[in-house]
Simulated assay, not measured.
Amino acid sequence: MNFPAQQPASAIGQATAIEMSRAEAEVKAAVFIAQQSPRNIQVAQQEMRFTCAQYAVAEKAFFSYPKAGQTISGPSIHLAREIALIWGNIQHGTMELSRDTALGQSEILAYAWDLQRNSRSSQIFIAPHVRDTKSGKKSLTDLRDVYENNANLGARRLREAIFAMLPDWYVAEAIEICQKTLDKGNGQSLEERVVEAVANYGRVGVTVKQLETKLGRPRGEWDEADASKLQIIFQSVSHGEMTRDEAFPPDHITAAEIHQQRQQKAPAKTADGDAPQPEVAEPPTS
């Protein structure tokens, strides 16, 4: 009995196969050049240490976002790109292979390739054109929204692909140095960092009370670790990794507080039980 030829999976189209073949041919051609100019590990390590000691790098080195009632944090795509550049002989990136507006999804490739060792980490994934909101999933139709959504999802896969190509000891040391740099601050005292953090959050509508709730202690007891945590969260909100309301749920007033506020605003009653009438000023005499 003859069976019909198996059709290729719709998730990976012809354009994807052509693009993968072209990209692979280009990288294979670059492998020879990379092997002729191998990286100097000692030099790369020294440059990494210097770079991670810079506050401008350390403040973007970590991410934080809520998931299933917990806070997920770790080294960011910014740190991955920075230390991959220093390590050398690595190509990485993301590429939108196809977009289906009818199905509301894009096909994206995220990859990292160590040309010197000829080792590659890549992933093709489907990015739905949707965004999670408090009222459920929202379909994205605006081109800018779709682009930002794809870039955000692609950056997460790219981060893992880059770290898969870098030695564990190299990444671990970079993370440790960045954390120490972040804890020290940018030459500011702890009080100055706290004032700056409160001001930054105030501009996006986050109150001191919300910050204190997040850290679990009053402002006067914040330490360097707390200031670093606030900096990481602020960067994550600025980069769109989580929204302000996800990081700091709005304050909810209780029924008792509403009743108390009404009592404070209500005029006091007189002995006969009636509220006093407002005084009317007499007209000035001429």
Rank of each mutant, 00 (worst) to 15 (best):
Pro4Thr: 07
Ala5Glu: 12
Pro8Ser: 06
Ala11Gln: 13
Ala11Leu: 10
Ala17Cys: 09
Met20Cys: 05
Ala23Ser: 11
Ala23Arg: 15
Glu24Ala: 09
Arg39Leu: 05
Gln42Gly: 00
Phe50Asp: 02
Ala53Val: 00
Lys60Glu: 02
Phe62Val: 03
Ser64Arg: 07
Tyr65Leu: 09
Ala68Met: 07
Ile77Tyr: 01
Ala80Leu: 02
Arg81Cys: 08
Glu82His: 11
Ala84Thr: 04
Ile86Arg: 00
Gly88Arg: 02
Ile90Asp: 00
Gly93Ser: 04
Glu96Ser: 09
Thr101Asp: 12
Leu103Ala: 15
Ala112Gly: 04
Phe125Val: 04
Phe125His: 07
Asp132Arg: 15
Asp132Phe: 11
Gly136Ala: 05
Leu140Lys: 06
Tyr147Thr: 12
Leu153Gly: 04
Arg156Cys: 03
Ala164Trp: 06
Trp169Ile: 09
Glu173Thr: 10
Ile177Pro: 00
Cys178Lys: 06
Gln179Ile: 04
Asp183Met: 15
Lys184His: 11
Lys184Arg: 14
Gly185Trp: 07
Arg193His: 09
Lys214Gln: 11
Gly216Lys: 08
Pro218Leu: 05
Trp222Asn: 02
Ala225Glu: 11
Phe234His: 15
Ser236Thr: 08
Met242Arg: 05
Pro249His: 11
Ile253Gln: 09
Ala255Tyr: 11
Ala256His: 07
Pro267Asp: 03
Lys269Gly: 00
Ala275Ile: 14
Glu282Tyr: 06
Glu282Asn: 07
Ser286Val: 05
